[in-house]
Amino acid sequence: MLGFAFAFIATVLHIVLCFVGAPLVTGIINKLRAWALGRRGPPLLQPYLHLARLLRKITLVPDTATDLFTFWPLGAFLALAVATMLIPGFTTGMLTADAGDYVTIIGLFALARSATMLGGLETGFGFGGAGAAREALFGIFAEGALLVLLLAFALLAQTTSVDGIATAFRTAHIGISVSLGFALAAMLAVALTETGRIPTDNPSGHLELGMVHEAMVLEYSGRLLALLDYGGMLRLLAWMNLIGTIFLPFGMAQATEIFSWPGGLALWAGKLLVMAVALSIFEVSRAKMRVFRVPEFLGAALLLGMLAGVFLFVAARIGA
């Protein structure tokens, strides 16, 4: 009973921290990027101010849009919110652990992506259509790579829930294997594409021909844009959590043991900070690639994912 209560509190804490902290993570990354470029950068709390300002504005609806115009941002937000709740952050063994299968999480990301794409097609103007078509193209390779990666994780951890993978990787002695290296590279490539970061998309671009994500939300304003922007922040945090949980599971707390929480929370913050630094340094040192080079980038991720599964077999045979 006490264990259940602790797990419940841990789950609520995780959800609250993620939902409150997501804009802060974005703010930190923006600040770090600006520093790396030698600028002073916006204040850390700028994303909160941005969302608050958007909430106060009047929401405009284009006259060419249908009644579902307001539905797509909500759909995308809800899918990302559920995904964020399911992916563990500072602790394993949350109440949502059983529902958090890796395939379900891929599906939720796909749901958010399709809602955003439909939002882009809603108004019926060129930018939205082009953005949606490119997003559909990226999604094809990204989803294939993500599924193939699951094979390597499932073979090592004997389970397919993200929570179970984290527990297995933290407790069992997996060691540093070639397969996990490949898997990490593939996962990072997919994560960069899914969250719309450089080198596949430019998060700070607003009106250029190569943009993808920004093109689809071009017609949204006011509280609908706030919902979409907040969804984007949640997605970034969810991906950081996913990578952190699978590849850096050390020091994660146990939901039923309250004394392990402070350490888990501190390490979680540390991991997020490290990932934010790595992301911002990577972003300022790379250029955005052409739209039609991205599938090659993701195709390489797909192959790496397959190699990870095959190498595991070889490693099991030679006893490494």
Partner: peptide, 30 residues
């Protein structure tokens, strides 16, 4: 079977693109 997984993933995403195209172009927009 790794190849099969990749095909299933790619097929799933293609089906998603087809469904989005059906709704987005047929029922939304102008």
């Amino acid at each position: 079977f790794s190849g099969l997984l990749a095909v299933l993933g790619i097929g799933g995403a293609l089906a998603l693109a087809a469904a989005v195209r059906l709704i987005g172009l047929g029922f939304l927009g102008r």
